[in-house]
Design a protein around this nucleic acid. Structure first.
Length: 434
RNA sequence: GUCCCCAUCGUCUAGUGGUUAGGACAUCACUCUUUCAAGGUGACGACAUGGGUUCGACUCCCAUUGGGGACGCCA
């Protein structure tokens, strides 16, 4: 058993990389890394009619984003069509396949499923057996002489020396067909593992109608790839030690197909959000900073160069209150925009009091004179003023929050003011005095 | 419909014949507190059903029920 393990992820470029595909890729990758083998990328592009040009970018971009690096490829299946045809011919000559009239002209080739039953030892499910009769003959070469999935897949896997075929549960009924093909062609058989599918909230296979299933979506919303990877790994696999947050390195170390559950798992975006939130809160700042900067630029909150020191402060302010970076758009607008809109309800509740103009006037003056505009100093000013005026701290803090952020909810007022800067604070208080 | 796969809290799961069935998300309290979060503490909440096997079943076997998947000249 010292044979080098070789696995592949073989998506077809018919759409963006979705959660399910990413999970299949992830488990292949984890298996390869754990076994110190090779992870190979092959693009199954033999169906040019359904191919979408953007799909390839999404697939490759998604894999890179998650950090699933491949050792060989990408190989394009369409480059091997001659080889597929050759083996179709071989099968005809061996009498294991026959020509039939093609649906749209030309002769197609049909593989003759041998009688009997096929048994195989699935690496996650255990023994599976299917009556070949149930499957019947199947086309391996179309009338236009292009190969179909089962032929192309078997020939390519054989020539890439794939040792373990790890794919979704939806392929179990293809496996006996492929095993028959391997045997008819005298190729040596790989092992097979079928991963349970990822389900939507209603328990059916995850699809577009379940909402955001594109990996791109999470990338755009500013999720952290390591958090998404962590979550996906725990969907159907467990480190068995009651931990939720597990580093990639540890996952690789502990991963095994035997440990993969047999039951389809429902994709729970709430838990993903929680997971991403904990990664955000614990902050591995460099990457977070980069992701945040990129996002804030994309929505126009940051125009030109980013001040990393300041951005770090912004993130510190919000990192325990957002689940993903895109939530800054709503929650932190007052830090980035010049003009803020005052929330009507908050205004009604906090800014309509008699003492407000007088208090804000004083507050504005004192803050304006502050040399060190930091949370501690600001707090001293605010609490001092409230005491002098004989009002509770909250009676100053809440109105000031509304004046300065436009809303009744924000991170701590003093820290927020400090990050916002003296100029904006003073200007916004001033606006409420008139 | 036929075949295949699956079955522990609402969800993700630990559990491999003897446990008060553990953890996490969500939910709900309480706490902390300048708001909201976060944090802390706690509560709620599961072995689908029926037969076996066994001194003893969540754990093993069978059936039922339920769910999912596959039945393309798509992959």
């Amino acid at each position: 058993m010292s044979e080098k393990v070789r696995v592949r992820f073989a998506p077809s470029p018919t759409g963006y990389l979705h959660i399910g595909g990413a999970r299949t890729a992830l488990f292949n990758w984890l298996f390869a890394r754990h076994k110190k083998g090779q992870f190979i990328l092959r693009i199954e592009d033999t169906d040019r009619e359904r191919a979408q040009p953007k799909a390839l970018d999404s697939i490759i971009g998604g894999l890179k984003w998650l950090g699933l690096d491949w050792d060989e490829g990408p190989f394009y299946q369409s480059k091997f069509i001659e080889k597929h045809r050759h083996f179709a011919q071989v099968l005809v000559e061996k009498g294991k396949a026959r020509r039939i009239p093609g649906k749209e002209g030309g002769d197609a080739v049909e593989f003759l499923m041998p009688p009997g039953e096929t048994r195989f030892d699935d690496l996650v499910h255990g023994k599976i057996k299917i009556d070949n009769q149930e499957l019947g003959n199947f086309v391996i070469l179309r009338g236009d002489q292009t190969p179909t999935y089962n032929l192309a897949c078997v020939v390519d896997d054989a020539f890439l020396s794939i040792t373990d075929v790890i794919r979704g549960d939806d392929h179990v009924s293809n496996t006996p067909k492929q095993i028959a093909l391997y045997q008819a062609l005298d190729f040596s058989l790989p092992r097979f593992a079928h991963l349970p599918l990822i389900l939507g909230a209603d328990g059916s296979r995850l699809s577009k109608r379940h909402g955001a299933t594109a990996l791109d979506f999470y990338q755009e919303k500013g999720y952290l790839p390591e958090a998404v990877l962590n979550y996906l790994a725990l969907l159907g696999w467990s480190p068995k030690d009651n931990r939720e947050k597990v580093s990639v390195g540890e996952i690789i170390e502990k991963f095994s197909l035997e440990g993969v559950g047999k039951k389809g798992a429902i994709f729970d975006s709430e838990k993903l959000n929680w997971m991403n939130g904990t990664y955000l809160a614990e902050g591995n700042s460099e990457k977070m900073l980069e992701i945040a900067a990129q996002y804030l630029k994309s929505i126009g909150y940051i125009k030109d160069e980013v001040n990393p020191e300041w951005l770090k402060k912004v993130l510190n302010l919000f990192k325990t209150r957002i689940k993903y970076i895109a939530q800054l758009k709503e929650q932190a607008d007052f830090l980035f925009l010049d003009e803020i809109k005052i929330d009507a309800g908050a205004e009604e509740k906090f800014l309509k009091r008699d003492y407000i103009p007088g208090m804000f006037k004083q507050l504005r003056e004192r803050l304006g004179e502050l040399e060190v505009f930091e949370a501690g100093e600001i707090e001293e000013i605010c609490r001092g003023l409230a005491k002098e005026l004989g009002v509770k701290s909250g009676d100053l803090i809440h109105p000031a929050r509304v004046a300065v952020t436009g809303r009744a909810v924000s991170p701590g007022l003093f820290e927020t003011m400090a990050v916002m800067g003296k100029e904006k604070c003073v200007k916004r208080l001033e606006k409420q005095i008139i």
